[in-house]
């Protein structure tokens, strides 16, 4: 069981001020929880200002995974990092709304590039404020 979890480890890549996570597997609940804490640890370790999570491969987001994503966005914002969910499939978006799941605090972008632009704009705005 342990080896299975290790096999399915989801890599977190840091590029400049951002973390990039591409979820390529259908996650079981424990893997989702593990990913959540890994990302938060990575934010603490690197001081990343933003996290891009690509879910374009995910064919389904149920209430558990949805809750994991929005919980992570809230926790990350407390740590001064923004989370952008990228590439949600239309069928997944429709299903999430019908399921009745609110995902407060979660920003979304159509693709990785748009998501990156969002995060960069947020950083620029913040620098202006700081100034």
């Amino acid at each position: 069981m342990n080896t299975d979890l290790q096999e399915k480890r989801i890599p977190i890549i840091k590029i400049r001020d951002f973390l990039i996570v591409s979820i390529q597997v259908d996650m079981h609940d424990r893997l989702a929880i593990k990913l959540q804490s890994q990302i938060l640890e990575e934010i603490a370790k690197t001081g990343a200002k933003g996290v891009l999570i690509d879910i374009s491969v995910l064919e389904m987001v149920d209430s558990f995974i949805g809750r994991m994503l929005s919980g992570m966005a809230t926790m990350a914002s407390i740590m001064d990092a923004a989370v952008v969910i990228v590439g949600m499939q239309p069928a997944v978006a429709i299903t999430l709304v019908e399921l009745g799941l609110d995902m407060p605090g979660v920003d979304t972008a159509l693709n990785m590039e748009k998501g990156m632009e969002m995060l960069e704009k947020r950083m620029r705005d913040q620098q202006v404020e700081d100034f």
Binding site: H28, Q89, A91, I94, T95
Partner: peptide, 29 residues
């Protein structure tokens, strides 16, 4: 692990009877 395995099976059966992509996603979820 069975949760993941069985929902994937549901998806493939939904596909198998030519259900549309949104309905596949609805029933799987």
């Amino acid at each position: 692990y069975d949760i993941v395995r069985i929902r994937q099976l549901i998806r493939s059966h939904a596909k198998g009877i030519q259900m549309g992509i949104v309905d596949q996603t609805r029933i799987t979820t």
